[in-house]
């Protein structure tokens, strides 16, 4: 961020405001806002669960017609779907708000955020922490449990580590994609859907066996937009399968480094976007 950080003024007679305390306040304010409309909130959570269910049914409607799909059995494909779903729902939960950046810009809300002493991105993350999206996460976790029960993984310490890293790296990758989607809307105010190709398109790719895609798509969604690194590639390693030409199985370990690199790039893009808005260059 371009903003200068100044140290908190020393507290005279009370504990200073730590980052953790501020974050807790912001998030809890957001949570209370949402439960303000209780009836609709329940319907929202249900809607999110059904959404996750249809995503699963889409996969099932294809897989039940074939013995293997992209070289994976139903149970193996379920593992990919579950990893992708967990990662996406966490990323969406925390940063999904940036998807509607063009509205925040249009209705002037951005200006209010800009005159507060906090980075805009942090305020966005906490301004619309959508609890209803938890419905999706719950379904995703159930799918993950089912996939673990149905597949036969030869566990070793490395695989355990990979299993723990994978959902977190997935959440980080989708979070970064959402930040990028928000940033792009500073240039393309009417082009919100353009960014959806990478966020929601990324989710779609991530939840399917990558070998079932055309080779150019495999390469693009692994090495440019790292969607297959979210679930498919690590699943190959966990299941001991070989990947297709565009997604060799060693890419299974690339999720975390890819997330770090992507975050760096997307934060640069975000910074350029804010600078574009303030007219400070770019």
């Amino acid at each position: 961020m371009a903003e200068t950080k100044t140290a908190a003024p020393p507290a005279a007679d009370s504990s200073p405001v730590t980052n953790a305390k501020l974050l807790r306040l912001l998030v809890s304010a957001r949570l209370r806002s949402q439960t303000a409309y209780r009836g609709s909130f329940a319907a929202d959570v249900a809607g999110q669960m059904v959404l996750a269910l249809t995503e699963f049914v889409e996969l099932y409607a294809i897989v039940h017609n074939v013995p293997t799909f992209g070289g994976m059995t139903f149970a193996q494909a379920l593992l990919v779907f579950a990893f992708a779903s967990v990662g996406f729902s966490i990323g969406d939960l925390i940063l999904g708000e940036t998807d509607s950046m063009s509205e925040v810009i249009r209705n002037g809300k951005l200006e209010v955020l800009l005159v507060r002493p906090l980075p805009v991105l942090l305020q966005l993350m906490t301004s619309d922490f959508q609890l209803r999206r938890v419905g999706r996460l719950v379904f995703a976790l159930i799918a993950l449990a089912a996939a673990l029960f149905l597949t036969d993984i030869q566990w070793d310490p490395g695989k355990v580590a990979l299993f723990i890293i994978t959902p977190l790296a997935g959440a980080a990758i989708f979070g970064a994609l959402f930040v990028g989607a928000g940033a792009v809307q500073f240039w393309l105010l009417d082009g919100r859907q353009f960014a959806n190709a990478f966020t929601y398109g990324g989710r779609y790719v991530a939840s399917m066996p990558g070998a079932a895609m055309f080779l150019p798509l495999q390469v693009f969604f692994t090495f440019v937009v790292p969607a297959t690194l979210v679930a498919y590639a690590p699943s190959l390693v966990l299941l001991g399968l070989d990947g297709p030409a565009g997604i060799p199985s060693w890419t299974g370990w690339l999720g975390l480094p890819a997330a770090v690199v992507l975050w760096g790039l997307m934060l640069l893009l975000w910074r350029a976007a804010i600078r574009k808005y303030t007219g400070a260059g770019g």
Binding site: A8, P9, A11, A12, D13, S14, S15, P16, V17, K21, L22, L25, L26, A29, R32, S33, Q34, A36, Y37, R116, P117, L118
Partner: peptide
């Protein structure tokens, strides 16, 4: 927007890094 008016002030106070005593 969705919170009681008084709930905005603790958040703004914290954003400005002011302890409650201030």
């Amino acid at each position: 927007w969705d919170l009681p008016l008084e709930d905005s002030f603790p958040i703004l106070g914290a954003m400005h890094r002011q302890p409650e005593s201030r």
